[in-house]
Design a binder for these strands. Structure first.
Length: 417
RNA sequence: GUGGGUGUAGCUCAGUUGGCAGAGCACCAGGUUGUGGCCCUGGGAGUCGUGGGUUCAAGUCCCAUCACUCACCCCA
């Protein structure tokens, strides 16, 4: 038996119904906000991710599926979607017709991490991005959209955290201030943080080690170092969220693992998935379009962890599987042929009908009908075929009535409606 | 990449000091010649995760390995 690849998984009937429901809820909602679907490839040149996400990040350094294809080009299975969407926006000069574009996409992402609850090597994301809008309204709108999605999926027990990471003007100042602070308490930090205080000092703010956490309560907050523009932007985001009734908390220590973020960043957290608490996350990436060779154009977006979302929805979801509308139990070859003709005709008319094609006994056919949860079974034997009247059994009441074989589909429609 | 827990039938799991591979549920058939659920009887189904080792004998003990899982880390 050949096993599937570690960290990969099948999504089976019984689960896919929920996935479809979530997908439809999301895409209907996004469409109402003016988002259009974009479909991008699962592989890109490695360089695209390395440059946008950041050479020094964990994702790029040790999690990407990167390899040389048969022509020798270095390519990577996408670890996230934003870089590809921005690449596509630039490549097709989509900013030319209307610089403001709103996209969504749904699909698999790949990161080679140690698998865990809510963490797979192939996982799915629902992404939404707004390109060409610098206004903080865009930030608030995206978060409002997320808020609506979760409430339409009847999810409570989620909390939204926001922060601002500043811009290329003010972040370096903060970085210096923070490094100075970290120098002062180096001895009290964990081993990782001592290393990080040089390579990526912002990460120290996000450390989970209790000792570091405690120490970091006194650390300078990035929100205190923002330049005037960034400060105004962040304030308008908060004001707008209040206006829209979106609850949120400011998390001064939230740092995200992709280098491209500027200004607003946010995460939606759940308490029900163990350590993997982020159900969605995102933020602004105002420099990315230009960095990839496009015009100076702002951007912001989010990614929802589809697998994690499905997992917390499944906790309070009822069975979404639907059984057939009718089961046709046919006895004998002539009747089977008739039944076969009927189930095909019914499917064509949108009625889901099942039958047994293996020539099983009536008893076993009834048993299967019961298992499939149908409420009506049409019984057809030699007698019924010659008399032109089939037996229709209501499985709940056990009542059986005769129905004429002609215009059967009409009759069935009437009964199941 | 690091650490803990778990791998026995489709599913949930028993399996004693090493001594014939088990139960419940599910599935199939029959009891009922053409009628589901309840009941009864029977049946099929296993590389005991995999590979080595110890032993007359290993599901059981030892070593290795793989997978799942939880946590660290990271993120969706």
């Amino acid at each position: 038996m050949i096993q599937l690849i570690r960290g990969f998984k099948d999504i089976l009937p019984g689960e896919t119904e929920l996935w479809q429901k979530i997908e439809k809820t999301a895409t209907d909602l996004f469409a109402d906000f003016g988002f259009q679907e974009i479909r991008i490839p699962v592989m890109e040149k490695t360089e695209l991710f390395a440059r946008t996400i950041g050479e020094q990040t964990d994702i790029v350094e040790k999690e990407m599926y990167t390899f040389a294809d048969r022509g020798g080009d270095m390519i990577t299975l996408r670890p996230e979607a934003t870089a590809s969407i921005v690449r596509s926006y630039i490549q097709h000069k989509m900013y030319a017709q209307d610089p403001v574009r709103k996209f969504y996409t749904i699909g698999p992402m790949f990161r080679r991490e140690r698998p865990q609850k809510g963490r797979y090597r192939q996982f799915y994301q629902i992404n939404a991005e707004i390109l060409g809008v610098a206004s903080p309204y865009a930030d608030a709108q995206l978060m409002y959209m997320l808020h609506l999605l979760f409430s339409r999926l009847s999810l409570s027990d989620l909390s939204a955290h926001i922060n601002s990471l500043g811009c290329p003007q003010c972040r370096p100042d903060f970085r210096n201030t923070l490094m100075a602070f970290l120098d002062g308490c180096r001895e009290e930090l964990c081993e990782d943080c001592r290393r990080r205080s040089q390579s990526n000092p912002l990460r120290v703010l996000d450390c989970k080690v209790p000792k570091c956490r405690e120490k970091m309560t006194d650390a300078p907050a990035i929100t205190d170092s923002l330049c005037a523009e960034c400060r105004a932007h962040f304030e308008t985001v908060q004001k707008s969220l209040n206006l829209l009734g979106v609850p949120f908390a400011i998390d001064k220590r939230m740092v995200r693992g992709l280098d491209y973020y500027t200004r607003t960043t946010f995460e939606i957290l759940t308490g029900s998935l163990g350590a993997q608490s982020a159900v969605a996350g995102g933020g602004r990436y105002d420099g990315m379009v230009q960095m990839l060779g496009g015009p100076e154009m702002p951007g912001i977006g989010f990614a929802i962890g589809f697998d994690r979302l499905a997992e917390i929805c499944a906790m309070n979801a009822q069975n979404l599987q639907k059984g057939p509308a009718i089961y046709i139990a046919a006895i004998g070859e002539a009747c089977q042929e008739k039944a076969f003709e009927w189930i095909c005709a019914m499917a064509e008319q949108g009625i889901r009908a099942e039958m047994d094609m293996e020539g099983k006994s009536l008893k076993s056919q009834m048993k299967r009908a019961d298992r499939l949860g149908v409420s009506n079974v049409l019984i057809l034997g030699e007698d019924e075929l010659s008399s032109g009247l089939a037996l229709l059994r209501n499985m709940k009441t056990k009542e059986q009535i005769s129905v004429p074989i002609g215009n059967l589909a009409e009759k069935i429609k009437e009964i199941i409606s």
